[in-house]
């Protein structure tokens, strides 16, 4: 059994962060409520995870006002996309080794 793999990204160990990145890989932009509903998490939980991903420059958080209501949307960055792809590749090679 391989104990550690260099490319397995620590930032994606949390299921919520992995979910956020997965959704943002296939959607250009997702708003706060849709993301919350998709992942089935609380407001606070989503906010803290998106903040963590933002501080890594993996996603950008946009805040706008629609009328008087604030609307928060998320999008992936180039860096985030690269990191996610590397993470996927690492998972893939890990699983290939396990199967053999």
């Amino acid at each position: 059994m391989i104990e550690h793999l260099e490319d397995i990204n620590k930032a994606f160990e949390s299921k919520v962060r992995l979910g956020i990145m997965s959704v943002l890989m296939v959607n250009e932009e997702v708003d706060f409520n849709s993301l919350k509903e998709l992942l089935g998490v609380t407001d606070g939980n989503l906010a803290s995870h998106t903040r963590a991903l933002e501080s890594l420059d993996y996603i950008v958080i946009k805040k706008q006002f629609v009328g008087r209501k604030p609307r928060t949307t998320f999008a992936r960055t180039g860096k985030g996309e690269k990191a996610f792809r590397a993470h996927l590749a690492a998972l893939e090679s890990f699983l290939n080794k396990v199967e053999r």
Binding site: K15, L18, G19, S22, V23, N27, V30, L38
Partner: peptide, 9 residues
């Protein structure tokens, strides 16, 4: 998880 989230969204 990745597959489900990508499909669902």
């Amino acid at each position: 998880e990745i597959r489900v989230m990508m499909e669902k969204s």
